[in-house]
């Protein structure tokens, strides 16, 4: 089976019943995508499939054959950080960093569909991404700063 990830095609040996998360982490060693719960309740494993944020722990790879998959490794292009990545660094939105890849991708997909959201829309958009370190304050501010610019 072939998967298209971050613009590159990968031939994979895992069966179609393997989660996308496991294939990313264990077969392709794209370990930027994290597993926090395995049940779709924390958002740490969020990746984009055709531009939409999904929990990669709840998707088996058979489902995403032929789709465009974006992981955190593909968010910056040609060594240039995505504005959200830069904002997360500048605003202090990163602490332990375990939820960070998932939240960045959720935020990207969200801003792509709504470029001028309110604070409460941002909070709703990232409600599927738990963060235990920051209290969300600086994460929300970082996303707002990108939305405003």
């Amino acid at each position: 089976m072939k998967l298209k990830i971050n613009g590159r095609e990968y031939e994979i040996v895992s069966g179609p019943g393997t989660t996308l998360l496991d294939v990313l982490r264990y077969e392709l060693r794209l370990t930027g995508t994290k597993e926090g719960c395995g049940t779709g309740s924390c958002g740490s494993c969020t990746v984009l499939v055709d531009g939409k944020a999904i929990n990669s722990c709840l998707v088996i790879v058979g489902e995403v054959e032929g789709k465009e998959i974006t992981t955190i490794e593909g968010l910056s292009r040609q060594g240039k950080l995505h504005p959200l990545q830069q904002a997360f660094i500048n605003e202090g939105a990163v602490q332990c960093g375990f939820c960070t890849p998932g939240i960045l991708l959720t935020a990207k997909a969200f801003l792509d569909s709504n470029s001028h959201p309110t604070e409460s829309q941002i909070r709703q958009a990232i409600a599927g991404n738990l963060c235990r370190c920051t209290g969300y304050d600086k994460i929300v501010r970082a996303i707002m700063s990108v939305a405003d610019s």
Binding site: T31, K34, I72, F88, I89, G97
Partner: peptide, 17 residues
């Protein structure tokens, strides 16, 4: 900004797993 933030926003930071 945290000096570890860059590796964390790019998914390159290495955790035990």
């Amino acid at each position: 900004p945290r000096i570890d933030a860059l590796s964390k926003v790019t998914g390159t930071a290495i955790y035990s797993g």
